[in-house]
């Protein structure tokens, strides 16, 4: 009985230390599209945890609890989630519409559902460039 208890405690300590390690190392990246989403799971159609916008700084962790190719484990504000790696840039994007034309963009009076759908466009689109 006591042995089992020790074993459970050891497992708990191990798991929590693992979580700490995951959360420790990160890089800063910047979101490339006009709007986007932090997803609950590394899947384009997964639920959104929060909406992000062009040029927003994002913490990208070196390790993910559920690693999937081409997806990054990130933290935005208090939310932890997943973003497609190709949507993240090492440096601030050269062009963000809402930053270049803030007064015009603000005047469009977008509501929350607009921001949600706008961010979803990139998740649902098939994208490629025909070869040069």
């Amino acid at each position: 009985m006591v042995k089992n208890l020790f074993f459970i405690i050891a497992v708990i300590i191990f798991v929590s230390s693992l979580k700490l390690t995951i959360a420790e190392e990160f890089d800063v990246r910047y979101f490339a599209h006009t709007f986007g989403h932090v997803h609950k799971t590394p899947f384009a159609y997964a639920d959104s945890k929060t909406t992000i916008q062009c040029g927003q700084a994002i913490k990208v962790f070196s390790k993910s609890p559920s690693p999937v190719k081409d997806w990054s484990y990130v933290k935005v504000g208090e939310e932890l989630g997943h973003i497609q790696t190709s949507y993240l840039l090492k440096e601030k994007p050269n062009f963000c519409f809402q930053q270049k034309y803030p007064i015009f963009f603000q005047s469009l009076n977008l509501d929350l559902s607009d921001l949600y759908y706008w961010g979803r466009i990139y998740d649902h689109a098939i994208e490629f460039t025909s070869g040069s």
């Binding site: 689109a125 994208e127 490629f128």
Partner: peptide, 22 residues
């Protein structure tokens, strides 16, 4: 996406950035 890219390239339509929403 893959099929469309191939046909575009076969027909010489190059450097076209495509975004396709189904």
């Amino acid at each position: 996406g893959m099929a469309f890219k191939k046909v575009l390239e076969d027909l010489g339509i190059r450097n076209l950035s495509v975004r396709l929403l189904v």
